[in-house]
Design a protein around this nucleic acid. Structure first.
Length: 828
RNA sequence: GCUGGUGUAGCCCAAUCGGCAGAGGCCACCGACUUAAAAUCGGUACAGUGUGGGUUCGACUCCCACCACCAGCACCA
């Protein structure tokens, strides 16, 4: 290796090897030290890392290395979200087994991550498709099944025709599959659900207790959970009081304005309400029409609401008035009770529908003077509402509920938009659901000692839909764990989001064999202190993981209420203003970047080009700039090694003016970099501060001896270079390790403590004040720091330039901001 | 439509409590070095902060009303 050239490839390979040999980043529990659990979302092993991975892992690695230097015992693990559809599709297309495909991908991605210089404790690597991993998930499934938190039901579910499997609500985006973008259809299917709705209130409440999370993620979760308070009550069918339609409303105060009612087309009562052949046929036709609409069409705004009036009527219990009853597509079976009271006066949807069907509209809230519009949803005084007249909306809501409760007609009710998490997948490459169906005993969970239920290796994958496991006789045909009789195994596998709901716990004790994780280890490491990942999981993975953690807590397995104390949602990596994609041809290959410039440069640019939460526009010129900067660092340090190796220490404060200023620059840089990392993760400004320090080095190094005594120069240069390398180390670990070693250090730069700014060095004797006249800068004034205001004012007014400007004006007042500025306000 | 975010130089981005609009990088231009080029070094230029009001001695920053872009949600009763 040439001694003075920045040989990126040699240096990076050398230090990666040394870190690996030393097992430098292995984490062990140590109650005597403060811990820091730093975690980035683990990747799906697709085969190649992309620039988004480079960004998130550069951020995570920076924090892990920084926290180690701050004295924390850092856990920084990595693993693989290894179950999923791409593996299965690869098998169908190329005939390679999903397991082989997956493990080969893991090997190449691990090597890619290592080449980035990441400081993971690879001894803790976790792979979710390993039976030793999903075994524990199956055990928890059984415990959830026993507590009713995992249940099976037949229902209309989201079906992706391309992935040929069910999707949870969270996995449908604007009517399309989150993974493949196909249009989702509804299908009536039997499947397994996790009762996440049982935790809706807690999940919502804790949104207010996660100050380390970005507000936008919390907002998205709150909206997703969608809590709404209101009332539920019965509308009896006219003439058939035994037939009651339950409705939910957030506006019980408007009940006197109910002029019709609507139930969802799929509502089970429809069949009993429809009378006669003709009406039954009309209902069937209407249902068919609604079912034909795709999810996309149903979501379209301004689509006319379709409805069919039934012959049956219902009675408004508040007024006793008989009102018409409709089935309509704007009422959804899946929310509330699947039926509503319609109040066109105060609800825009009902107003639209009423206008279309020529139904009466009653106003029950007094409109403000001059108000124009259709339905009125604002505050006001109740009118046309019997015993509620004269009350405010809020009071009337309470009074209406009391009234319902007293008569036994209804009650206060809270509803959620959140639905239970559908976890059944009709695919092969996932964790088997540990349930059996016995002719005699019915649904029976597998016995604990028989876990894991291992996914069979030999399977025919056709991609035609339906679980491939159903065709594997040796898997399906089993003995009933209860009676020993013949039983069939469940052939659905679990949603892969189940594995990622607890992997952070497994990292605490990845080889533990007596349970999901070792309690002491989890108690020590959990919760994750800093979690880092993409915003795309704001309501998917992040909500599931919170839910699953709470379930584990209630099973007595962990003490934490929430898995992630702080969350950093990094922005996307884009190119030329657009998301990278094959079709746009704007994909940047991380390998190529590392080969061309090195991992340090790729990391530095990722951290420097934008603050982490914003999108990052990958720019080739910018990358070259980052490389140039590192070359400059190299050239300076390598070029001054002889001087820097001299052990000269500075006694007392530096004597010369230049030295004092330079030393202040060093310590200001330390302070700025530390503050930027610590407070807002503003790595971009931290880098710019380091760049400033580096830019200041050559001038000081070549200061003439009469301005800076040589001994002082050597000592301060050494102080500056060491501080600079320490500050830069978490960003660019390879080059800093190499230069650190060349300075004569035998220990790793990461064994060093993070530098601290010396307050004495930060002090200034003099400050330059800006002198403004009526808010405009007119002059400058150098005064000693902390000079009394009276002196400052006198000197400002005595300034020549100021005098000129003030010639024909009268001074009205003088505003002084200590150590900053003087503003002379004049009379106009 | 609702919610959240972002608008600062040709581009990516800074600016602490309301106090000099500029830290850093890119690009451009000029100069030095060179036979020349690359690399390197030095230097220069460029915006009044999306728009319109308001508060203030002073506004990128606070308030009001708009505009644009991005993201999430969207018949949720």
């Amino acid at each position: 290796m040439s001694s003075d050239r920045y040989s990126v490839r040699d240096i990076e390979a050398k230090w990666q090897r040394i870190w690996e040999e030393r097992k430098q980043f292995r984490a062990t529990e140590d109650p005597s030290r403060p811990k820091f659990y730093c975690l980035e979302m683990f990747p799906y092993p697709s085969g190649r890392i992309h620039m988004g991975h480079v960004r998130v892992y550069a951020i995570g690695d920076l924090l892990a290395r920084y926290k180690r230097m701050r004295g924390f015992n850092v856990l920084h693990p990595m693993g693989w979200d290894a179950f999923g559809l791409p593996a299965e599709n690869a098998a169908i297309e190329h005939g390679v087994h999903p397991a082989i495909w997956t493990y080969e991908n893991i090997d190449s991605m691990r090597s890619q991550l290592q080449k980035l210089g990441t400081s993971y404790d690879w001894d803790r690597e976790v792979t979710t498709c390993d039976p030793a991993y999903y075994k524990w998930e199956q055990l928890i499934f059984i415990k959830m099944f026993e507590r009713g938190l995992a249940y099976r039901r037949r229902s209309a579910v989201n079906w992706c025709p391309s992935c040929k499997t069910v999707l949870a609500n969270e996995q449908v985006e604007a009517g399309r599959c989150w993974r493949c973008d196909s249009e989702v259809t509804l299908r009536e299917i039997e499947g397994w659900f996790f009762k996440i709705t049982a935790y809706a209130d807690e999940l919502l409440a804790w949104c207010d207790r996660l100050p380390g999370w970005p507000e936008r993620v919390l907002t998205m979760q709150r909206n997703w959970i969608g809590r709404s308070e209101g009332a539920e009550f019965d509308l009896p069918a006219a003439g058939r009081p035994e037939l009651k339609i339950r409705v939910f409303t957030t506006r019980p105060d408007t009940a006197f304005g109910m002029t019709y009612a609507v139930i969802a087309p799929e509502h089970p009562l429809v069949d009993r309400l429809a009378a006669g052949e003709a009406e039954r046929a009309a209902v069937a036709a209407f249902r068919a029409e609604v079912a034909r609409q795709s999810e996309i069409e149903r979501l379209a705004v301004d689509r006319p609401k379709r409805g069919l009036r039934l012959s049956a009527c219902v009675v408004n219990p508040f007024s006793g008035v008989e009102i018409p009853l409709f089935i309509a597509d704007y009422v959804l079976m899946g929310y509330g009770t699947g039926a509503i009271m319609a109040v066109p006066g105060e609800d825009q949807r009902d107003w639209d529908f009423a206008k279309q069907h020529d139904l009466p509209i009653i106003e029950t809230v007094e409109r403000p003077p001059g108000w124009v519009g259709e339905a009125y949803t604002g505050e006001g005084i109740k009118i046309n509402s019997g015993f509620l007249d004269g009350l405010t909306v809020a009071d009337a809501k309470r009074r209406a509920i009391d009234w319902l409760v007293q008569r036994g007609l209804g009650e206060a009710k809270v509803n959620y938009r959140l639905r239970d998490w559908g976890i059944s997948r009709q695919r092969y490459w996932g964790a088997p659901i540990p349930i059996l169906y016995c002719d005699a005993c019915g649904m029976v969970p597998e016995r604990e000692e028989n876990l894991p239920v291992v996914l069979p290796r030999d399977v025919q994958l056709s991609g035609k839909g339906g679980s491939p496991l159903a065709d594997v006789a040796t898997f399906v045909n089993a003995r009933c764990p209860r009676c020993g009789g013949r039983a069939r195994r469940e052939t659905d596998t679990m949603d892969t989001f189940v594995e990622s709901s607890w992997y952070f716990l497994r990292y605490c004790s990845p080889r533990y064999e007596s349970g999901m994780f070792e309690p002491q280890a989890a108690d020590y490491w959990m919760p994750v202190d800093q979690y880092i990942g993409g915003i795309e999981h704001a309501v998917l993975h992040l909500l599931y993981a919170r839910f699953y953690t709470k379930v584990l807590r209630d099973l007595g397995l962990t003490k934490v209420d929430e898995p992630f104390t702080a969350l950093l949602s990094q922005g996307m990596v884009i190119k030329d203003g657009a998301k990278m994609s094959k079709s746009k041809g704007n994909i940047v290959d991380p390998d190529e970047q590392v080969r061309k410039y090195g991992a340090d440069t790729a990391r530095l640019f990722s951290l420097f080009a934008a603050p982490p939460e914003k999108d990052l526009d990958w720019n080739d010129h910018g990358v070259e700039g980052a490389f140039r900067f590192l070359s400059r660092v190299w050239r300076f340090v390598a070029g001054h090694l002889e001087e820097l190796r001299q052990v000269g220490s500075l006694r007392g404060a530096p004597g010369s003016e230049e030295s004092r200023t330079f030393r202040r620059t060093i310590h200001e840089t330390v302070k700025r970099v530390t503050d930027d990392i610590e407070h807002d993760f503003h790595f971009n400004t931290a880098v710019s501060a380091i760049m400033e320090l580096v830019n200041a080095l050559p001038a000081f190094a070549s200061a003439p001896p009469d301005r800076v005594p040589p001994g002082e120069r050597t000592a301060l240069l050494r102080e500056a270079v060491e501080a600079m390398l320490l500050l830069l180390a978490p960003f660019c670990p390879h080059i800093t390790e190499e230069l650190w070693a060349r300075l004569g250090h035998t220990e790793s730069v990461f064994a060093r403590r993070w530098p601290e700014a010396d307050p004495a060095a930060l002090e200034r004797d003099e400050v330059t004040l800006v002198v403004q006249i009526d808010g405009k800068v007119r002059s400058r004034l150098t005064v000693e720091a902390g000079a009394p205001e009276a002196d400052v004012q006198r000197r400002a007014l005595a300034d020549d330039k100021v005098k000129t400007w003030l010639a024909a004006r009268r001074v009205e007042r003088v505003v002084i901001v200590p150590n900053r500025l003087v503003n002379i306000v004049t009379h106009s």
